[in-house]
Amino acid sequence: MKISLQINASPYQHQAADSAWHFIQAAILSGHDICRVFFYHDGVFNALRDSRPPGDERDVVKRWSELHAKHGVDLVVCVSSAQRRGLLEQTVAKKLGGYQSALADGFRIAGLGLLMEALIDADRHITFGD
C-alpha cells in the first residue's frame, strides 16, 4: 500500500517527528511503500542542516537523511513555510545572501502541488503534528 505522510510540527517541540519516524519504520517493515513525507509549517525544521543535537540523543535531521539514503523516501519541504523561517535552498540562498543551502541531505524543496500529488497518489495520507 502507498502511504504518504505530512508533518506539521518542529522536532524537539512536538512528538510528531518521532511518531512519524516510528510509523514509517513499522510500515516499511510491513512491506508498505512510503511514497512521500511532506514537511509543512514548523515541520520544515526537520530539514535544518545545521541542527547539532547532543551526541547522546537521537539526531532527528540525520535520521531523515538516512531514511532517504536507505529507502529512497521522497522528503519534500514546503517552500513557503521554509522561506518564512529562513530555511533557504541553494539557489534562493545565493540570490539573497550567498549562504549555502539550509536543507540537510535528502530533502528537496517544493510547493503545495507535491502535497496534492501525494494526496492523490497515495492510498492513505497521515498527518502528524498540530
Binding site: 502511504i3 510509523f23 519504520q25 510500515a27 517493515l29 510491513s30 492513505r124 495520507h125 498527518t127 498540530d130
Partner: peptide, 20 residues
Amino acid sequence: VDYAGFVMLVTEHQPVRSCF
C-alpha cells in the same frame, strides 16, 4: 497496539483522519 498495529489500523480503515 504497537507501531506495527498502528500501520495495520491505517491499512484496514478508509478514510483515516488525524484530529487536532
